[in-house]
């Protein structure tokens, strides 16, 4: 059962990491246009990095 002392914090840490990633993507506006983003990958202009979101267009 000693292994629990390691596993529980580890699972919580990983979960928090996921939550952090979710909050980050949320604030970056990645859920504002899911359909458009899925189409933009077909455009060679965005092969290196996605089209930047203008500051003004963020909430």
């Amino acid at each position: 059962m000693e292994v629990l002392a390691l596993l529980i914090p580890a699972s919580l840490f990983l979960g928090l990491l996921g939550l952090g990633a979710f909050l980050w993507s949320l604030r970056k506006g990645q859920y504002d246009d899911p359909e458009g983003d899925s189409q933009r990958i077909l455009d060679p202009r965005y092969d290196d990095k996605p089209k930047p979101v203008e500051k003004d267009q963020r909430g």
Binding site: D32, D33, G36, Q39, L42, D43, R45, V53, E54, Q57
Partner: peptide, 28 residues
Amino acid sequence: HCAGCISTIERDLAKMEGVNSARLNLTL
């Protein structure tokens, strides 16, 4: 409705005089 629409519109508007940037939101 498609990737073609996005690039046609955004490319064309980028060329338009006085336009800094344009972004098409396909979802909305």
